[in-house]
């Protein structure tokens, strides 16, 4: 849906959320072969994210919970991503270090227990997935950019270009510089040259982003002494990242991109708000 605009347009996303909010409830209940009457609680993302979209989900969830005076569990979206790891056949047991990389976030998280998470580092500008999307646009590839770059990169030489990723202090990330480097490289090429070098550019760009993610993740693992590293979020689907972190645990592919199963998973470790305390609950845009 967002392919047409080359990214997520808040107003478009929010309109779509409203169209789908009841149909997805119907579908989930049907697929689980259950009914509203047998629910014990309603879990919903409270933030962070696009506030217009969050408020659609939150309003509907409050109404559904209120109708049956059920408790409401307001879940943090980032916690949800971490909790996607608890939905596998052999759930990952804390403590572990978690790299969350998606279109909206790039975070290193220390997970001491299932309900708790402590952010160690974050991106100072673009998220890793956003860097992939913007790079894909510069290369004339489709949306979502991560998958398009990943596919094309397999045919290219990752050492063809040297795209430096800024080293910022602590355990934070910065991806705006690498995007600018790609912009300059593309700008210097004629249309024919770009056509010929596109795969090399994609491979080098992907390598630069992935190396930055891996380097920081390894530093964080050393600092925290975490026995395991896990990777979640849309960028966890990237094949180069998977290859570069052979010992890490990756979220199951269908649970890498945003999904409601991970929110329900996180709800198990989040305090529920009993009726009627949640009726005035508001969404939050940033964490």
């Amino acid at each position: 849906m967002h392919a047409r605009f080359g990214g997520v347009v808040p107003e478009v996303a929010s309109r779509r959320h409203l169209e789908l909010v009841v149909p997805v409830l119907r579908e989930a209940l049907a697929e689980a072969d259950t009914e509203l009457e047998s629910l014990d609680a309603v879990a919903v993302t409270q933030g962070p994210g696009l506030v217009g979209a969050l408020l659609v989900g939150l309003s509907a969830a409050k109404a559904v919970a209120w109708a049956n005076r059920l408790p409401l569990v307001p879940v943090d979206h980032l916690h949800g991503h971490v909790a996607s790891l608890y939905l596998q056949h052999e759930p990952v047991e804390p403590p572990f270090l978690c790299l969350l990389a998606s279109g909206g976030h790039t975070l290193l998280i220390d997970v001491a227990e299932p309900g708790a998470f402590r952010v160690l580092g974050t991106t100072l500008d673009d998220a890793a997935g956003e860097a992939f999307d913007k790079g894909a646009r510069l290369l004339g590839l489709g949306y979502p950019g991560g998958a398009a770059i990943d596919r094309l990169a397999r045919e290219g030489d990752p050492a063809a270009y040297d795209f430096p990723v800024a080293r910022v202090s602590g355990l934070d990330f910065s991806f705006s510089g690498v995007k600018t480097a790609l912009l300059y490289a593309v700008r210097d090429l004629s249309d024919d040259e770009l056509e010929r070098r596109r795969a090399d550019l994609a491979a080098s760009y992907e390598r630069a982003i992935v190396s930055a993610l891996v380097a920081r993740t390894n530093e964080a693992a050393e600092q925290t002494g975490a026995p395991r590293t896990a990777v979640v979020g849309g960028v966890a689907a990237n094949s180069e990242l998977r290859a570069a972190l052979p010992d890490a645990l990756f979220a199951p592919l269908p649970l890498c991109t945003d999904n409601a199963a991970m929110i329900a998973s996180a709800a198990r470790y989040t305090e529920a708000v009993p009726f009627p305390g949640y009726l005035e609950l508001d969404a939050y845009a940033s964490g």
Binding site: S14, L18, V22, V51, S59, A63, V64, N68
Partner: peptide, 19 residues
């Protein structure tokens, strides 16, 4: 307000669906 309109519709649809 677009957001206000959607909050009302989302709550109303959720409530009507649930009941």
């Amino acid at each position: 307000s677009f957001t206000g309109v959607r909050m009302g519709l989302a709550a109303a649809r959720g409530l009507a669906f649930a009941l």
